[in-house]
C-alpha cells in the first residue's frame, strides 16, 4: 500500500520514462481494415481475455493467481498501445508486482490446497454464468452500437506520457492526490489493526464470538506453532497475524 504512493510520487517526479510510443499514421479510418495497432490490440486482448477466463474457471487456486499475472500484464501492454505509458508501468509495478504477491501470500496463509480443489466453484455457477453472459451481451451491444463511428487518434505526442500525466496530476488533481494519501494511511492502519491479535479483553465479543463454538478444531496448529507464539508475544507484523496466544484461546473458549 505504501508502495503505491511511493511509486506514484517517484514516477510523477521523474523525467520521461519512455520515448513517445510510435503509432502508425492512418489517414482514412476503416472498420474492416484494421491498422497494425488494432491488430496488436486485438491479439493482446484475446490473450488477456483468455487469461482472465482461466483465472475465474481454473480449479487450482495458485494457477488462478498466476494466470491473473498474465491478464494484468496483458492489460499493461494494452495501456502501452493506447499510449498511456505511465499507467502501464504503474500497472506493472503495483498489480503484477505487489497485488499478485499479496494474493499469493493470502493463498498460502489460508493454507490453500496445492493441486485441484473440486469445490472451487459454488453451486450457483450456472446462475452466475447466465448473469455474466447476459451482462456481457448487453454491454457489448450497447458499447458497439454507441461508438461505432468513433476513432481514437493515436498520432502525435503520447497523450499519457509521464510528463503529461504528471503535469495534469500535480496541476489539477493535487487535492484528490493528497486525500488519497490519507486514504492509504487509513488503509495501512486498518490492515495493522485487523491483522494484529486482539489484546485479551475479557468479555469483548469482537470477531471471536462466532468462533467460540468451533474454535478447538479450527486453531489447533497455530497453538503449536512456535512462530505464531513468538510473533504474538512480540506483537509484530505477519507473525502476529498468524497465531493467537494461548491466553486468548482460553478466553475464546
Amino acid at each position: 500500500m505504501s508502495l503505491a504512493a511511493a511509486a506514484v510520487t517517484a514516477h510523477a517526479a521523474g523525467t520521461h520514462a519512455l520515448a513517445a510510443h510510435a503509432a502508425p499514421s492512418n489517414g482514412s479510418h476503416g472498420f474492416l481494415s484494421p491498422t497494425g495497432v488494432e491488430i496488436t490490440f486485438l491479439l493482446v486482448g484475446l490473450v488477456t481475455f483468455g487469461a482472465a477466463l482461466v483465472t475465474v474457471t481454473t480449479r487450482q487456486l495458485v494457477h488462478a493467481a498466476l494466470w491473473l499475472v498474465v491478464a494484468l500484464g496483458g492489460l499493461a501492454v494494452e495501456y502501452l498501445l493506447l499510449t498511456a505509458e505511465f499507467i502501464a508501468w504503474v500497472q506493472v509495478l503495483i498489480y503484477v508486482g505487489s497485488v499478485v504477491v499479496l494474493l499469493l501470500f493470502g493463498l498460502m496463509l489460508t493454507r490453500a490446497p496445492i493441486g485441484r480443489s473440486p469445490d472451487a466453484d459454488s453451486g450457483n455457477r450456472w446462475a452466475a454464468l447466465a448473469v455474466a453472459a447476459v451482462a456481457a451481451v448487453t454491454l457489448v451491444w450497447v458499447v458497439v452500437d454507441a461508438f461505432r463511428t468513433t476513432w481514437i487518434d493515436l498520432d502525435g505526442p503520447a497523450a499519457g506520457s509521464t510528463e503529461a500525466t504528471g503535469e495534469s496530476l500535480f496541476q489539477n488533481w493535487v487535492l484528490p492526490f493528497e486525500g488519497l494519501s490519507v486514504l492509504l494511511l487509513a488503509a495501512l492502519v486498518g490492515a495493522i489493526v485487523l491483522s494484529r491479535k486482539a489484546k485479551a479483553e475479557p468479555g469483548s465479543p469482537s470477531v471471536n464470538s462466532g468462533a467460540a463454538t468451533g474454535s478447538s478444531p479450527s486453531v489447533p496448529d497455530s497453538r503449536n506453532h512456535p512462530i505464531g507464539r513468538n510473533g504474538a508475544s512480540e506483537g509484530t507484523g505477519s507473525g502476529a497475524s498468524e497465531g493467537t496466544t494461548p491466553a486468548e484461546q482460553e478466553g475464546a473458549r
Binding site: 479510418h29 472498420f31 484494421p34 491498422t35 495497432v37 488494432e38 490490440f41 486485438l42 486482448g45 488477456t48 481475455f49 494494452e78 498501445l81 493506447l82 456481457a136 454491454l139 457489448v140 458499447v143 458497439v144 461508438f147 461505432r148 468513433t150 476513432w151 481514437i152 493515436l154
Partner: peptide, 12 residues
C-alpha cells in the same frame, strides 16, 4: 484505433 476495441475488451 477504433474505440470499440478497448470498450469491448473492457466489457468482456
Amino acid at each position: 484505433m477504433h474505440l470499440a476495441y478497448p470498450a469491448v475488451l473492457s466489457a468482456l
